[in-house]
C-alpha cells in the first residue's frame, strides 16, 4: 500500500480536525534531551564537530541543543553556526515573490569537520538539498549528519535521510506542522494544522 492508513484517515477527516498538538512541553523536553545524548554517543568530545542550524527555525533548535549539550557536558569543544539557504533554493522564479533572505553566520571553515545540520521540520527535503549547496562555500566537510525535530513521513521529494529524529509523524501535504518556540511567547510545542484552520 502506497499510503499508510493514518494518512488516509487524516485525509478523510482533515476538514473536521482541529489543530492537534503533536508534542507538548514535557515530551518536547524529553526529546531534546534524548537527541543530545544520541549526539554525545556519536561525537564524544565534539572536537571535530560543528553544529549548523538552517535559518530561520533550525537555528532556534540548533541553539537549544547547543546550550543543552554545554549543560550536560560543559567541556565539549563544539562550534555553532547559522546557515541561510535562500540564494540556494531551487524554486527561485517559480514563486510569486522571492523569499526574504536571512543571515548566514558561520565564522569557521568546515573543511574536514563533521557537520551536524539541524532543521525543525523535514518535509520535502528540498531545504536540506539547498543547504548542502550552501555549505560548500565553507569547505568540504568530512561528513554531514542531519538532525530534525519532526520528520514528516512519506513526503520526501529528494533522497535525504536524517540520522537523528525527534519524532516521525504522518500527515498529508495540505497540513502544516508548526513548531512553536518559547520565543513566540508560548511554551515549546509542536502543532499539526489542517488546511482549514489557518
Amino acid at each position: 500500500m502506497k499510503f499508510p492508513l493514518a494518512s488516509l484517515i487524516c485525509f478523510i477527516f482533515a476538514p473536521l480536525m482541529k489543530p492537534k498538538t503533536l508534542l507538548d512541553k514535557k515530551l518536547f523536553e524529553l526529546i531534546i534531551n534524548r537527541l543530545c545524548y544520541e549526539l554525545i554517543e556519536n561525537h564524544d568530545d565534539f572536537i571535530n564537530t560543528v553544529i549548523i542550524g538552517i535559518q530561520p527555525r533550525g537555528v532556534v533548535l540548533a541553539e537549544l541543543i547547543y546550550r543543552r549539550l554545554k549543560k550536560i557536558a560543559p567541556k565539549i569543544a563544539l562550534q555553532y553556526g547559522a546557515l541561510d539557504i535562500t540564494f540556494f533554493r531551487d524554486d527561485f522564479r517559480r514563486r510569486e515573490d522571492p523569499v526574504l533572505a536571512n543571515t548566514t553566520k558561520i565564522d569557521f571553515l568546515i573543511e574536514g569537520k563533521r557537520v551536524i545540520l539541524v532543521d525543525d521540520v523535514l518535509f520535502t527535503g528540498r531545504t536540506i538539498r539547498s543547504a548542502f549547496d550552501a555549505l560548500l562555500a565553507f569547505g568540504r566537510p568530512d561528513a554531514i549528519e542531519l538532525l530534525v525535530l519532526i520528520e514528516r513521513r512519506f513526503s520526501l521529494q529528494v533522497p535525504v535521510n536524517p540520522k537523528y529524529v525527534g519524532k516521525s509523524v504522518d500527515s498529508i501535504a495540505s497540513q502544516r506542522v508548526l513548531v512553536k518556540w518559547k520565543i513566540d511567547g508560548e511554551p515549546d510545542k509542536v502543532i499539526l494544522h489542517t488546511s482549514t484552520d489557518e
Partner: peptide, 23 residues
C-alpha cells in the same frame, strides 16, 4: 539594503558565489 547586507556576507565567504541566477 536588506538583501545587499546578505550578499555582502556572500562575497566575503571563501566561495563568493550563489547559484540563484544560473538560468
Amino acid at each position: 539594503f536588506h538583501h545587499a547586507e546578505k550578499f555582502k556576507k556572500v562575497i566575503n565567504q571563501p566561495i563568493k558565489k550563489v547559484p540563484s541566477l544560473r538560468d
